[in-house]
Write a protein that binds this DNA or RNA. Structure first.
Lengths: 189, 189
DNA sequence: GTCTATACGCAGATAGAC
DNA sequence: GTCTATCTGCGTATAGAC
């Protein structure tokens, strides 16, 4: 296990992650990633053999990040209700990127679906991590398993919708407004 | 104005529209469209000079279709409330396509945004047609201009979110469930 | 490990015969 | 109008020198 190679690999993954988000997967070439990292295309292939390989690594990296974030919320934020608010506030915090590039999860899933990409199911897992975590929170609030699932899907729906509409109309103030509606809804159930 | 050429042009546009929706704009090549229509690539260029030209024609065609649909609703459905329900029911009616390819408007806008495509603003106009129509309906229901805009944006947000989540989890029953919630909301305001 | 050189196919786009 | 032939650039991917 070479530390230097691992560092370079991580650098490539995080750069590819960023470019896939901002430019889309299909529209981002090996050259784009290689030049952004500052290595040659040939060197790039030493680390990743195919474009699907680098995509798989990016998705895996995101899943680790999402899991870490959720674990931190579970650990540091006392109540389930506050944690759900924290989730909603997250999209408010990312508003600048959202109006420019949309939701990092939703847009990549939507794109991969149309490409019939082999990594599509892994991409969906990223969203499922959030959904399952939400279900847990609603169950902790005393709701039934069925209700909790419906609530989680509804919350997911609203946040995804907010990102799509905010991006379309380049309206970041709108994110804040809809987030408040969503937090009122969370308090009402 | 040649009728035969016009017919072929329309055939190309509707085929391209379908392929852009199912495969995405970037991922659909001239060859894809030409072979689906049943003409050679060379012939294709007689009708459209660049890929942005065919995209512009597709978007224009959609805008005409959307405008026609909204006009028909205005004409044939008596009350604004029923018309808004009709909009929500539309996504239920399209559920089979939505779980497979997402929203025809949302997915193309999201993709064009990342490609920094020159037709992006025209694509957004498609969504704006729905938004402006919704605002009219809410105003007819007696709401203020400001409230009506917020309501329209909220309705748009929910329907867009539903398509993203339904596509991600390939869950068409979910569309019906969230549509009912949405119609309850429409009745409550 | 990192590089240059290069193969190969496909995409967008053009020219010109019929 | 529709076709075939062709150009050009880019994207993925490989080989092999250093």
């Amino acid at each position: 296990m070479n530390t230097k190679a691992e560092t370079m690999r991580n650098k490539i993954v995080s750069t590819a992650d960023d470019l896939f988000y901002r430019q889309g997967f299909n529209h981002t070439s090996f050259s784009d990633i290689a030049s952004a990292v500052g290595i040659s295309r040939g060197n790039f292939y030493y680390h990743f053999k195919t474009k699907d390989d680098i995509l798989a690594a990016v998705i895996e990296n995101r899943k680790v990040g999402i899991t870490q974030t959720l674990n931190e919320w579970n650990k540091n934020t006392p109540t389930p209700k506050e944690r759900l608010h924290q989730y909603v506030d997250m999209i408010v915090g990312y508003q600048d990127n959202i109006v420019k590039y949309g939701c990092p999860l939703g847009t990549v899933c939507s794109e991969l679906n149309k490409l019939e990409n082999i990594n599509y199911n892994d991409a969906i897992d990223m969203i499922a991590l959030f959904r399952d975590w939400m279900i847990e929170q609603f169950i902790l609030l005393g709701h039934s398993a069925e209700k909790s699932k419906d609530f989680a899907m509804h919350l997911l729906t609203c946040t995804q919708g907010i990102t799509v509409v905010a991006q379309a109309f380049t309206d970041s103030a709108f994110i804040k407004r809809e987030a408040d509606i969503l937090k009122d809804w969370l308090d009402s159930i």
